[in-house]
Amino acid sequence: MNGVDDRTGQVRPVGRTSAGIGRVSGPARFLQSARILAWRNVHNFFTNPALLLPAILFPLFFFTAFAGGLSRVQHVPGFNYPNGYTTFQFGFVLVQAAAFGGVFAGFSIARDFESGFSRRVMLATPHRSSMILGYSVAAMVRAVVVVTLLFVVGLASGMNVSSGPADLVLIVLLAMAMNMLAVLFASGIAFRFRTIQAGPLMQTPMFMALFLTPVYVPYELLSGWVKTVAGVNPLTKVVEASRYLLAGMTDEVAIAFGLCLVVGLVLFGWSLSGLRNAERSGG
């Protein structure tokens, strides 16, 4: 009962013409859907200063406040990071910026559900999981931009980086992996709650997870409960690997990527089941 063009016998109206157009299908359509969704989010990010500015200013703010205000801490006995406190803090802020970029993607998803935009997408594309890929790719593009800007500011402020080109590539990859984890985590929340009011639920756990790492001093200098928690927090390894790479060392790097992969798989399941949850609730 589809393709009923011959019903009227008149000039084929516009609404019908595409019925005569072949439709892209299969994996190609999945990728095209993901790409256009990513395009839309990236486009919004760069044309909307309200989205662009916080993503850049927040990490810069933390970087300036921590690196500037706390540098005395590097004189504590046992503080053995070779490249100085500014670089030490940069390693943390890089991870933080990547993570928050991912959380912002969760905000976009929630907003899209709130406005009904997601329903349109869910009706239009047969591959709904392309939504996860689309938002993730957009978040990664954003993360790369923010990380690059942070590097420029960091280097301008006298940060001492002794990484080789390979280390730099690994840093960017690490930031993107962190970004991906955050997208998957936040999208899982966004798919389930479908309202921007769930924003704190995406932001607060991520904030806590980040601050329960060795933020101000190396792990060995931590004390009390934070040391215990940071010891089992996978993000500790990510933050440490980021700092090591800035100092041209690859300690912890393999472990950090391995942990990202494992946690990423779990969070992918979390995000995908969230999407199924959204489908059951009608978007």
């Binding site: 504590v76 329960l212 060795p214 933020v215 931590l222 004390s223 009390g224 409960w225």
Partner: peptide, 16 residues
């Protein structure tokens, strides 16, 4: 929460 984290995370600073 923030003060609890900092109390533990920055305790090393008291050695300055």
């Amino acid at each position: 929460f923030l003060v609890a984290i900092n109390a533990s995370g920055l305790d090393a600073a008291t050695k300055l």
